[in-house]
């Protein structure tokens, strides 16, 4: 199976007649969980990721007393793949959460100052990434879901030392839309949006998050390496894909 896939990819073909730099079908649905302040369900092909957003009152970080907090975590649920096992976060899920976190933070996607309540009290925004079905490319699916969910997040009200979470109409202030593109290198071939099968034979992975103007986060993964020309190529494609992905988010958050 692996040899067959490698051969297929090195001859320029991909399953489902997909071009090397094409995404699978992407579906985004927002507001899928009523108990969360914001949520989104994103599928890229058979990969499916759910993100829920909760806001709680917290203390600010000592070096940023006038800003809220952003806490991102990822769960690779055992129900999502026979290869995922229950237990505490492993390096893979920590990496996934931290890359999504870096992209949101670097792009200043959320207006962190708008989360200030009063001295020593700010909102903490919890972004919880739940992988429901694994078929590759969790990075892009997770960031799409996080971004969409944040744009549809309603801010609770803090009044008389109590948090009110019902009948809200003020949205969380989102300033910037950031998306990511993830590539796999199989042999010497680069492909966008790898499936689970393709990820099982990739030698390296490269994720670029951009906001249309700036590169906002990069993460190279696995033992394989990249030439500079390959990186230039991936950066170029990443910027080309920005509008396409942004449009999908905008349509889902209208």
């Amino acid at each position: 199976m692996n040899d067959y896939l490698k051969e297929l990819i090195s001859s320029g073909l991909r399953s489902h007649d997909r071009g090397n730099f094409d995404y699978r079908e992407i579906k985004i649905k927002s507001d899928v969980i009523k108990t969360a302040e914001g949520s989104a369900d994103v599928s890229i092909g058979d990969t499916r990721v759910l993100v829920g957003i909760k806001l709680d009152v917290d203390e600010p970080m000592p070096d940023k007393p006038d800003e809220g907090n952003l806490i991102t975590s990822a769960e690779l649920l055992p129900l999502a793949s026979p290869d995922f096992e229950p237990g505490p976060p492993n390096p893979e899920s920590i990496e996934l959460a931290r890359v999504v976190d870096r992209a949101l933070r670097s792009a200043e996607a959320i207006d962190m100052k708008s989360l200030f309540i009063e001295e020593n009290k700010v909102w903490s925004v919890f972004v919880d990434i739940y992988v429901l079905n694994y078929d590759g490319n969790l990075f892009d699916a997770s960031l799409l879901a996080a971004m969409t969910a944040l744009m549809k997040t309603k801010k609770p009200i803090y009044k008389d030392n109590k948090v009110i979470r019902e009948n809200l109409n003020e949205y969380l202030k989102v300033n910037n839309i950031v998306v990511s593109t993830t590539f796999a290198k199989i042999g010497d071939i680069l492909i966008l949006d790898p499936t689970g099968e393709e990820e099982s034979i990739m030698n390296a992975r490269y994720t670029i998050a951009n906001d249309g103007n700036n590169i906002r986060a990069i993460q190279k993964g696995l033992y394989g390496s990249f030439k500079e020309e390959e990186i230039d190529n991936m950066v170029e494609i990443s910027f080309k894909k920005y509008n396409e992905l942004k449009l999908l988010i905008e349509n889902a958050t209208k």
Partner: peptide, 22 residues
């Protein structure tokens, strides 16, 4: 061979700044 083994990034870089950094 100048192969890139690790690359991480956060903040903001234009494509030109990225090339300069590399």
């Amino acid at each position: 061979n100048n192969e890139i083994l690790l690359m991480q990034m956060d903040g903001g870089l234009t494509r030109e700044q990225f090339k300069k950094a590399l």
